[in-house]
């Protein structure tokens, strides 16, 4: 896998309304390009996952468009889209009876055309993805017998085996321990740097976002609060009003980005954090 011609996935002032009455997303724009890692942060119910689903064409925007290299996602064939964009939801249902290796090979689906069996190339790609995510050791174990962190890495490996130009991930490190949280983001970083994949990751962890992402979109109540570089967005004075907490910044020696720690809820300001969902 070598670097390809740059790809751009852009949401152009997209809106999303579930029932035609309430807007879950209003006028949000984001442009993800090859080799760049975007972090989407914000309180629960801010519309982060909704935006990610629009980017992956899992939902249709009620306003605005999502384009891949200038072509509207809705105008593309589903398989063609799937060859270029991979999506990893927050929770993948436990697939009974499948081994980790089989799950990773399923990621090759859009590339296989009408063939019934995996080609040698498919298997090689799957092995490569499993090596990268350090899951090769349990390739033949049942997915259901793996720990949460192992299973999550297997699903990430399947998304990598899909060989996408853009990788969308919804809270991939929730429920993982420290080491595995770092490991997942290390892999994402490497995908962006070495293989030129555009990464968009929804996360609640400001410090992981600060350390591994290039750009950050801060959302609240279905709107974009601000977006820009890590240094611009992940600042206590920006985050504090959105999350309604006091935020302290702790400088780390040898690192350009300080740690952010929520220290207290803000009392008095009884305004709800998200959309109230």
């Amino acid at each position: 896998m070598s670097k390809r011609t740059p790809t751009t996935l852009s949401a152009e002032s997209v809106c999303y309304s579930f029932d035609g009455r309430r807007d879950f997303l209003v006028d949000v724009s984001l442009t993800a390009t090859s080799g760049e890692c975007w972090g989407i942060v914000g309180p629960n119910g801010a519309g982060k996952s909704t935006l990610l689903r629009l980017l992956g064409a899992l939902s249709k925007p009620s306003g605005g468009t999502v384009r891949l290299d200038g072509v509207s996602l809705e105008a593309m064939r589903a398989t063609e889209r799937a060859m270029r964009i991979a999506y990893l939801p927050q929770r993948v249902p436990a697939a009974p009876g499948l081994t980790a290796g089989e799950v990773v090979l399923l990621g090759r689906y859009p590339h296989r055309g009408l063939g019934l069996f995996e080609s040698a190339n498919d298997v090689a790609r799957a092995r490569d993805a499993m090596a990268l995510t350090e899951t090769a050791a349990f390739a033949d174990r049942r997915l259901a017998s793996l720990s949460g962190g192992e299973a999550q890495r297997v699903h990430l490996a399947a998304a990598l085996a899909q060989d996408p130009e853009v990788l969308l991930l919804d809270e991939p490190t929730t429920a993982l321990d420290w080491r595995h949280q770092l490991a997942i983001f290390e892999i994402l970083r490497r995908m962006a740097d070495d293989r030129g994949v555009g990464v968009v990751v929804v996360t609640h962890d400001m410090n992981l976002a600060g350390r591994y992402c290039d750009r950050v979109l801060l959302m609240n109540q279905g709107r974009s609060v601000c977006q820009g570089s890590v240094a611009d967005v992940l600042r206590p004075e920006v985050l504090a009003p959105v999350f309604d907490v006091d935020v302290t910044s702790i400088p780390i020696e040898g690192r350009s980005v300080a740690m952010l720690v929520p220290t207290d809820t803000r009392r008095g300001g009884e305004q709800p954090g998200g959309t109230g969902k």
């Binding site: 799937a82 939801p89 929770r91 993948v92 249902p93 799950v103 399923l106 689906y109």
Partner: peptide
């Protein structure tokens, strides 16, 4: 088997 979202995202 991997859920509707994953299946849909794979085309």
């Amino acid at each position: 088997l991997l859920g509707e979202d994953v299946a849909a995202s794979r085309g």
